[in-house]
């Protein structure tokens, strides 16, 4: 049965990837816009360089990028490229490929999103569990309503308000950028501290926006566990409340939250991209915002597809790991 489950999950992953790649391929081609022509028009506007044989140049570029071939052939080649990890060249930074640009931006995004998701997951689940735990102090329960409100607000908006209050009014932290101006990236302690200082506000906005999701989910879980026989039994055995809380209560309530982690990847990455764009960080979000501003379609499509694929793969991995964490669930269930 394990094999059957695995095969089903893999087929599902393939279907999602195929559909996403197909959408990303066809939508731009349905539109009447010509990215290469627009690029040249922009160059002409900004530099005054307007060659007479523009049409020929554009045609030459289309041959180079394979845009002159029949649509079906383009589709097959594009799919082959996606499988090999080739997302095409960048229009505005031509010799560089989209994948190279993504990989140079990726570490920033991964560090920011990993840290914030871990902190938010741990803190949110702790708060949620405490809120449903009968012995915990009152103020923890009172925290739930504000957390619910915060959860409704996109991280981007929280980021904007944080910039206003903390960076603009109180001048405690920088307003944006990945590091102070005039500093060259290096692996010195000084640079790392400076970069970390610039990450605090983006991190806080991402954490605040997602904290409520974990806390409310965990509280719901905790409430259903409260009445369970094994919790009552543990209490009557005279176990220390802390043991009951960590070993009986949290341990059991935490498992469905891990599935929530898989569901949350999509929104975490999307809000991360938006927050990065807001703070002008050099991660995927900054790259995307920049590409939209400069009409670099190939980067827009490349990043979108890349993010969709990573989300699909992450969800697939969580699906595989989940049965290992929860001994009650076997692969054959479902």
């Amino acid at each position: 049965m394990r094999l059957g489950y695995l095969v089903r999950r893999i087929l599902f992953l393939v279907a999602v990837v195929w559909v996403a790649a197909t959408i990303v391929f066809f939508i731009p081609r349905l539109s009447a816009r010509n990215p290469i022509r627009e690029r040249f028009a922009e160059i002409a506007r900004s530099t005054g360089f307007a060659p007479k044989d523009l049409d020929q140049i554009i045609a030459a570029y289309e041959v180079k990028f394979g845009l002159d071939k029949p649509l079906l052939q383009q589709y097959v080649e594009y799919m082959g490229g996606v499988l090999r990890g080739d997302l095409g060249p960048s229009l505005t930074r031509f010799p560089k490929t989209v994948l190279e640009l993504i990989f140079s931006a990726l570490p920033w995004t991964i560090v920011l999103l990993m840290l914030t998701t871990l902190i938010s997951f741990a803190l949110g689940n702790l708060l949620g569990a405490l809120a449903s735990w009968p012995r915990s102090p009152k103020f923890v329960k009172g925290l739930m309503a504000p957390l619910m409100m915060l959860q409704a607000v996109p991280a981007y908006l929280l980021g904007l308000l944080l910039i206003f209050f903390i960076a603009f009014r109180l001048k405690l932290l920088p307003m944006g950028g990945a590091y102070s101006q005039g500093v060259t990236p290096s692996l010195t302690l000084e640079f790392i501290l400076d970069a970390a200082r610039h990450q605090i506000l983006p991190a806080i906005s991402l954490i605040l926006a997602s904290l409520g999701f974990w806390a409310l989910g965990m509280r719901g879980m905790g409430i259903t566990i409260q009445g369970e026989d094994y919790v009552n039994f543990a209490e009557h055995k005279g176990l220390h409340p802390r043991t009951i809380f960590t070993q009986y209560y949290v341990r059991n309530a935490l498992l469905p939250q891990v599935t929530g982690l898989a569901l949350a990847f999509g929104s975490v990455i999307v809000s991360g991209v938006l927050v990065e764009q807001l703070y002008g960080l050099p991660g995927l979000g900054g790259l995307l915002g920049d590409a939209i501003l400069k009409n670099d379609y190939f980067i827009i499509y490349g990043i979108t597809l890349f993010v969709i694929l990573s989300i699909a793969i992450l969800m697939f991995l969580v699906d595989l790991i989940y049965p290992l964490l929860d001994p009650r669930i076997r692969y054959e269930s479902r």
């Binding site: 999602v16 939508i27 999509g266 990455i269 979108t304 993010v307």
Partner: peptide, 8 residues
Amino acid sequence: LPIPAFLI
């Protein structure tokens, strides 16, 4: 459903 609609 698993494809983040926003990116599309």
